[in-house]
């Protein structure tokens, strides 16, 4: 992942343009690809207008990878909203008792929206992005 993350519009609400930096750390990140494949997220690289920049943490954050997560958050320009996607990112999930897993990415960076699921459906990603952008715009 680089700071030049891809931009999308939401099929459910084309007025919403998001730049999604997907930190795909485990299986949840596949749901992001499914959302693109199924047209829930429509690529919009050349589109004009402001975009919400979202750091999408999809997967298990291990203690070893925690500094990399923080570095990516700090490397993204402008205002960045963090989405914690799935149980692992939110709390450690099935690995809640593992000594090597960070018990929630919110221990590292401020989280704007938590999407529940193991994994969440692609539709849940869209619902989370809508909730997040509504909150940022409000």
């Amino acid at each position: 992942m680089t700071p030049a993350a891809p931009a999308f519009r939401l099929a459910a609400d084309p007025t919403v343009r998001v730049v999604v930096a997907n930190l795909g750390l485990a299986c949840c990140s596949l749901e992001v690809d499914v959302a693109i494949q199924r047209g829930l997220l429509v690529p919009d690289e050349d589109g004009a207008g402001a975009a919400h920049c979202v750091l999408l943490v999809s997967g298990t954050v291990t203690d070893v990878l925690a500094p990399a997560v923080v570095r990516h958050y700090e490397a993204l320009p402008g205002h960045v909203s963090v989405m914690s996607f799935g149980a692992c990112a939110s709390t450690g999930g099935p690995y809640w008792d593992a000594p090597t897993v960070t018990q929630g990415v919110d221990r590292l960076v401020p989280v704007s929206v938590y999407v529940p699921g193991c994994p969440p459906r692609p539709e849940a990603l869209v619902a989370g992005l809508l909730a997040l952008t509504a909150e940022v715009s409000a």
Binding site: A87, T91, G92, P116, C118, E123, A124, A131
Partner: peptide, 27 residues
């Protein structure tokens, strides 16, 4: 936030008080 959606609770409930629903929009 912690649930791994394994469904063991739904399976073990002797009185079907717990059930799956397709709801996803509760971020």
């Amino acid at each position: 936030g912690l649930c791994m959606f394994c469904g063991i609770c739904v399976e073990v409930c002797p009185f079907d008080a717990l059930e799956w629903t397709p709801r996803f929009d509760y971020a």
